[in-house]
């Protein structure tokens, strides 16, 4: 499991939305950018994991999440 206490919220949203845009289109990415604005990091990470797991499967979701969290460390 990856640490969920990530301080850099702007970067988390940026990379998370990029990932959503890649797998679900730019319009979906824009909707999530709005949704994440007032959410804390823990909720954003849980939400990203859930969406990605549902769409591309848990293994790929975890792989993508690791990449994001490593980028913003």
């Amino acid at each position: 499991m990856v640490d969920v206490t990530v301080p850099k919220k702007d970067l988390l949203i940026k990379y998370g939305v990029q990932l959503i845009s890649l797998h679900l289109g730019d319009m979906t990415g824009d909707l999530y950018r709005e949704f994440y604005k007032d959410k804390n990091n823990g909720i954003i990470i849980t939400s990203l994991r859930e969406i990605l797991s549902e769409v591309v499967g848990p293994a790929k979701a975890e792989y993508e999440m690791k990449k994001i969290l490593n980028k913003i460390k």
Partner: peptide, 9 residues
């Protein structure tokens, strides 16, 4: 296989 467990699969 890459999308295994996801709806895209």
């Amino acid at each position: 296989r890459d999308y295994s467990g996801g709806r895209m699969a």
